[in-house]
Design a protein around this nucleic acid. Structure first.
Lengths: 337, 337
DNA sequence: TCAAAATTTGAAATCGCTTTGAATGATCGC
DNA sequence: GCGATCATTCAAAGCGATTTCAAATTTTGA
């Protein structure tokens, strides 16, 4: 069923039918109704490729992931948020995975040149993010989940990682902890650097010396966290508290604590960052987990909204949002023994 | 940079340039080289919409998810596999989320009518899957991850859930367990029904009576599993072994066992189904987890391959694959006390 | 050597939509 | 009553690629 067929069926021109369907004012109300009714009845839908070619809009936003590995629980929650927001629009999410940095840059160029997407969403930026520089160069809109510093303004939405970790650290210090371990994200990622800044600021505010052995940088998986925490718990004096970068990390730390014959919330404290995975609830853990809390799904939804606003003409200089992070104290954070 | 610009730049017609780039035989080798070199140098990429309109191929395969919730760890691993396979092709993955069943059916119709995708991938089918019926009706190709029975052949790829659970159950029975709980997937999903069949078959083969109180159906999350396992552990006589539907489920059961003051691998045994999440390794758990093992990521990759084969003309009658499931025995499955 | 065949190129039609610019009738104001 | 205005409609020209069909050139074969 093409527009042409529909038009013939109605005894009208393609022009009029197209206008009627797209809500242009210069079409008779009776005609519009007749067209709409018939189109609905016959199940007419404009051919997406033709529509895109004619309008110049791709009707899609791109999400390029480094290695299929980046498609883990964090990203999938973020995507759930994005796609939730996008579902009411006639805009799709295009998912592309690449093997390495070089392929990634090539993918952006390719997608931009072939005009497959109207905009991109960038995730987990580095301090000086090359992707952002490239996309600014290519003059294709994007919204960054996180921040970067490349000397030019970019559209971004981020959570206040620095303040979150600073408050969590301060709280542990107030409880009396002096050996606080930080299991942070991969070095070079902005969010990890921001968290480190918050951690160091809190320590220095209380005059507590920094010990490099108590800081680890890695991806947020149960397994790596287990190993790092295990190693740290063998230090003497051992850490009395952990700041876990994610709930996955927290699970690994938890296991390490238990395996060392220690009890969480008694011998060792922990505050984890909670991205609010629906299948991993801090409140239902045992003991319940103290967290710095910010829904990554909501972030995804908001980033999608910002992309839509940019496509609607909002200048990127006006797209900056910093979300506060909640500190939720539960049973896992107590004074040291 | 359009084809026309490139052609003018080369002093050739669009026809020749197009042919040269698409590897048609009737173009002079010297010309082809010159065209290819220039195109690469100028970074020419055909406009995706125009190409799709001209060829009639959408260059994308669709993945419709019920509720943003379906986009959890299982799906994201599956997608990682799909996208890994697709990344070498000029075919994208289109992600759509819908709120409810009605919207979902509408989404399939809409995507089909607007010709946004060349094929679909269906996930987690029910015994009589309405989506499959609709897509057959609309005459648009799809590959199903799992099986359904709608009286017509469909293309599918599945793992042998029945045999996997039957073997796991039999093994526990052989160890001496008689009260074996099954934490299964949502009722009505084919894979859950298949697992139940395997479970019942193993029980009846050993003459062990079935107890409905030892069977739970739900989504595979830590939390729900925790609650179900907790309730089951309060039964008397209590179950001495658990079959956990996924690693998430296993984590919840694990917590319930611990909270009941019991020890996994001693007081209670467990065999979990392992979809091989890179961030949750059965071998690194404590105690190590016995599993029925089948990589869902590999499944995704294979399903993508099958879709490509179908788009290449392979008839759907020839697309049927049943993968065996490995049974890996580790420390969590021992004889009952 | 020269017609026939093979090779190489190009003009124009096509895909299905939007949108420009023109045309048609109806309505208005005086 | 009649030019001006308004409300509707339509034919045709894009959008940027592929592909059909024809033309130009070169090679072949007897």
């Amino acid at each position: 069923m093409r527009l042409k067929d529909l038009a013939e069926h109605l005894g009208l021109s393609q022009t009029t039918v197209s206008r009627a369907l797209n809500g242009y004012p210069e079409v008779n109300e009776a005609t519009r109704l007749r067209v709409a009714e018939t189109a609905a009845r016959l199940g007419y839908r404009p051919n997406a490729s033709a529509l895109r070619l004619a309008t110049g809009r791709a009707g899609a936003i791109g999400l390029v992931l480094r290695g299929a590995d980046e498609l883990g629980p964090h990203m999938s929650e973020f995507m759930a948020g994005m796609s939730g927001r996008m579902s009411t629009e006639e805009i799709d999410i295009l998912l592309i995975t690449v093997e390495n940095f070089q392929d990634e840059m090539a993918a952006y160029r390719r997608l931009a040149a072939s005009q497959k997407v109207d905009a991109f969403v960038l995730h987990s930026p580095t301090l000086k993010d090359a992707r952002a520089e490239l996309l600014l160069d290519l003059n294709i809109p994007f919204v960054m989940h996180g921040r970067t510093n490349i000397g030019q303004p970019v559209a971004w939405m981020d959570i206040d990682n620095t303040s979150a970790v600073e408050r969590a650290t301060s709280h542990l210090l107030d409880l009396g902890h002096r050996r606080i371990a930080l299991l942070n994200g991969v070095k070079g990622r902005t969010f990890a650097e921001h968290r480190e800044i918050g951690y160091l600021a809190a320590l220095s505010a209380r005059g507590v010396p920094f010990d490099a052995a108590l800081m680890g940088n890695s991806v947020f998986t149960d397994e790596v966290a287990f190993r790092m925490a295990q190693a740290m718990l063998e230090l003497r004096p051992r850490p009395t508290a952990f700041l876990a970068g994610s709930m996955m990390t927290a699970l690994g730390v938890f296991r390490a604590i238990r395996q060392a014959g220690l009890v969480l919330g008694k011998d060792v404290s922990m505050i984890a960052h909670d991205d609010v995975f629906p299948y991993l609830n801090a409140d239902n853990m045992y003991p319940t987990m103290s967290t710095t809390r910010s829904s990554i799904r909501q972030a995804g939804s908001r980033v999608a909204e910002l992309v839509l606003q940019m496509l609607g003409g909002k200048p990127l200089e006006d797209v900056h949002e910093l979300w506060p992070v909640e500190l939720v104290l539960r049973e896992s954070s107590r004074p040291p023994p």
